[in-house]
């Protein structure tokens, strides 16, 4: 599903919508896991969500915050939380982008507090 990754070059987070039943799913698949239809199209996510859960990963190098973010559209994304001193479950977060060496970007999330 390189279309998904290509869109990250333009800071667009795509979610797969089913043209048959309207379900939204992530990660992208060849079929809708709700109705089985193969009529699927990508639409851009609004970029908001809440932290379902998170963990600070300690391995070689700097620790980082891995999280499950429940997007406003419904699907959950495995991602990182950036620049959040004290992450908590259920906190609202906003989409941000971290560049990759090849020009693609990795969707990550920052705090939505104070907005």
């Amino acid at each position: 599903m390189s279309e998904w990754w290509e869109a990250t070059r333009d800071h667009r987070l795509l979610l797969q919508h089913c043209d048959g039943c309207g379900s939204v799913q992530h990660y992208p698949r060849a079929l809708c896991i709700t109705c089985g239809s193969s009529d699927l199209s990508f639409r851009e996510a609004v970029g908001t969500g809440v932290v379902d859960s998170f963990t600070v990963v300690h391995r070689a190098g700097e620790p980082y915050v891995l999280a499950r973010v429940r997007l406003t559209e419904g699907p959950i994304l495995l991602t990182h939380l950036d620049d959040i001193a004290e992450p908590r479950c259920d906190m609202p977060v906003l989409l941000a982008w971290r560049p990759l060496p090849d020009g693609r970007h990795l969707p990550v999330f920052r705090s939505a507090d104070g907005l």
Partner: peptide
């Protein structure tokens, strides 16, 4: 999973940690 490995979860520990 190409959508998860870029975030470098520890498998399986990070999942249980989030639980």
């Amino acid at each position: 999973d190409e959508y998860e490995s870029p975030y470098r979860p520890l498998y399986p520990a990070s999942y249980y940690a989030m639980v």
